[in-house]
Amino acid sequence: MTTFLNQLPALIGVIVGVLGTLLTTRLNERAQWERALSVRWDARRLDAYSEFGRALKEVHLLAHRLTASSRPSSRAHPIDRAAGLELIAQADAQRTKAWEGVLLLGDADTVAAARDWRWAVLQLERGARGIADDDFDWTAAVRRADERRDRFYVAARASLTVGSGDVAQARWLVDRQMNS
């Protein structure tokens, strides 16, 4: 019995060491799993945000092209009305599909910013189709869409924890127009 009691501290040390190793290994594996899961969701979120941005920007560009002939200062390449309306319908269908990815994967701030940008581009699309309100102002609508796009990208970048600084385009575009 005295031999056992003499070896008891060593045995307790081994048991504590094994339990500590198991706990450390478990916590380490859990942290690795959470990092892998975060990377996987971030990649999917990036794809959803990018797809939505491309689809919405396509509608925006087609609206510019549809109205280019009626805006003398436009730099957009005019497009035939029938072809443009068909292309805008296709782009809008893509935007609708991409929207589902943003709703599924986006955080609340990004979804709200995406909704605002989508609404602003819808106003441009309505203007291009000739169904906008009587007080529709193209320049103000474009500026609003550009500002909402910037808000979407700020929210999306925050959601993805991309921290490389301000990449806003709306101010740059306004400054560029004033200097032309």
Rank of each mutant, 00 (worst) to 15 (best):
G165Q: 02
Q94Y: 04
V102S: 05
Y153S: 02
V16T: 11
R35Q: 15
G165R: 04
A31N: 14
D47S: 14
A10V: 12
S69E: 07
T2H: 14
I131T: 15
A89F: 05
R95V: 02
A158N: 11
R149T: 01
S164C: 04
S70E: 08
W119P: 01
A141G: 08
A93L: 01
V162T: 12
A68H: 04
E34K: 11
R144T: 14
R157C: 06
A10M: 12
D116Q: 13
W138S: 05
G130M: 04
V14T: 13
D133F: 00
A155F: 03
V18H: 09
Q169M: 15
V59S: 04
L37T: 14
R171N: 09
S50Q: 13
G163I: 14
V14G: 05
A120W: 00
S69R: 03
G130S: 06
R143D: 14
W33T: 06
R143P: 05
W99K: 07
K57T: 11
R148F: 09
A89I: 07
Q90Y: 01
D135V: 10
D134T: 11
F4D: 08
Q123R: 02
Q177V: 06
R45L: 07
V121C: 09
D150T: 02
A168P: 02
I12K: 06
A158V: 08
E29V: 00
D107L: 09
N28I: 08
V14I: 15
T21V: 05
V16R: 07
R171V: 10
A155Y: 02
G163H: 14
R40S: 13
V111I: 13
A155W: 04
G20K: 05
R129D: 09
A145P: 13
L5G: 03
G130Q: 05
T139L: 10
L27Q: 06
T96F: 00
E125C: 09
E51A: 14
M1S: 15
W41F: 12
A113N: 10
A168W: 02
F4G: 09
R171G: 13
V167H: 12
G20D: 04
N6M: 09
V111S: 05
D92N: 06
D137I: 12
D42L: 07
R144V: 12
V59M: 10
D133I: 01
I131G: 12
D109A: 11
A63T: 04
F136I: 12
D166N: 12
K97D: 02
R118M: 03
V39I: 11
A128F: 00
F4Y: 11
A141I: 07
S70W: 01
D80K: 01
A76I: 07
V39L: 07
L8W: 08
A141T: 15
N28V: 08
R144S: 14
T110N: 07
F152D: 02
F52D: 02
W172S: 08
R81P: 07
A98Y: 01
A82W: 00
R144H: 13
R81C: 08
A83F: 09
L104G: 03
I15M: 13
V174D: 06
G165C: 05
F52E: 03
R151P: 05
T110C: 11
R151M: 11
L62H: 00
V154Q: 12
T21K: 00
E125H: 08
F52H: 04
A36K: 11
A132M: 04
L85D: 00
W117G: 06
F152W: 01
R129F: 08
R151G: 14
H77A: 13
